[in-house]
């Protein structure tokens, strides 16, 4: 067995798992508050990467500020989408939210494809994170290690805010019973808008993180979002921690598949989804829906 290659694939798996976790976390938070499955999540992830690219090439702003500015910019864009379009769907069937956000994804991806084609634009790794360290059993590129650790921190921080703070408690209460929470004088519509902004910001952050690894492409989020949907079906959307763990775990499984049976690496997450549906239809952590 080639351990160098195995660990290299495991690392790739962990990185993909970070993106799955960040994206499915955002989907779960948004679904909790808005009752909408955000099909535009992949397109907004792509916008995060492009925002970092523009910041660097137009304004000369580097990676570190972009890590904060890009999610904020895309988050504000998301909040505008919520105010102008998504808010009108409350009270309608969930499926309309899926259709509307699918349309938004087509528009965003189509516009970017018109101006940037389908090929990738390079985005350099910041100087501080260049190079790698030899861990003995494998060679670890520093940037890749950083992506995994930073994503993990962001995921845990999000979990902490939602599950352990007063703000999060309000949020969870508004998910359960918005009318009652409004009676306490909390502005629920504003909270919904901010929640959408937060979920979208997480997607954009994943986009910035992936820009130096996967290049910046208009369709980078299009196929990813379908895998993330499968992750969400497997994990269920009931629990924040569930989304994080499922995301990372599936990334690792995918990485292992790339080493042991590369032909199935594209499909392994979907196959696992089928198995989970056959054994435990409500998902690993979720409530039945």
């Amino acid at each position: 067995m080639n351990y160098q290659a195995l660990f290299a694939q495991l690392l790739v798996g962990l990185i993909n798992g970070s993106f799955y976790a960040l994206l499915s976390l955002g989907l779960a938070v948004i679904f909790g508050m808005l009752n909408i499955i955000n099909f535009a999540h992949g397109a907004l992830y792509m916008m995060g990467a492009f925002a970092a690219y523009f910041l660097l090439n137009v304004a000369g702003i580097g990676y570190w500020p972009a890590l904060i500015l890009a999610p904020i910019a895309v988050g504000i864009f998301g909040m505008i989408l919520e105010r102008t379009m998504l808010q009108w769907l409350s009270g309608l069937d969930h499926l309309y939210g899926l259709l509307l956000t699918f349309g938004m994804a087509l528009i965003i991806q189509g516009v970017f494809q018109n101006y940037f084609g389908s090929s990738g634009l390079p985005y350099a790794i910041p100087d501080e994170l260049k190079g790698g360290v030899n861990l003995g059993f494998m060679f670890l590129p520093i940037y890749r290690g950083w992506v995994v650790i930073f994503s993990l921190i962001v995921c845990i921080a999000t979990w902490f805010v939602i599950e352990r703070t007063r703000l999060g408690a309000n949020l969870r209460a508004a998910t359960e019973n918005p009318t009652l929470v409004r009676a306490f004088g909390i502005n629920v519509p504003r909270m919904i808008t901010l929640t959408y902004g937060l979920g979208v910001g997480l997607a954009a952050l994943a986009g910035v993180l992936s820009a130096p690894i996967n290049q910046v492409r208009p369709l980078m989020g299009a196929d990813l979002i379908i895998v993330v949907f499968a992750v969400v079906v497997i994990g269920g959307m009931g629990s924040i921690m569930g989304s994080i763990i499922t995301g990372f775990a599936l990334g690792i499984v995918e990485g292992l598949t790339k080493y042991f049976y590369p032909e199935a690496s594209n499909t392994v997450v979907f196959v696992l989804m089928v198995l989970v549906l056959l054994v435990k239809p409500s998902g690993l952590t979720g409530r039945a829906a």
């Binding site: 679904f31 379908i226 949907f229 499968a230 079906v233 594209n266 979907f270 549906l277 056959l278 829906a289």
Partner: peptide, 23 residues
């Protein structure tokens, strides 16, 4: 496989299954 879940999940599952077949 797909009818084990309702509504929004049904849509996501059918999408994932078709993507599986695509690959």
């Amino acid at each position: 496989i797909a009818i084990r879940r309702q509504g929004i999940y049904f849509a996501m599952i059918t999408l994932a299954l078709s993507q599986l077949l695509f690959f």
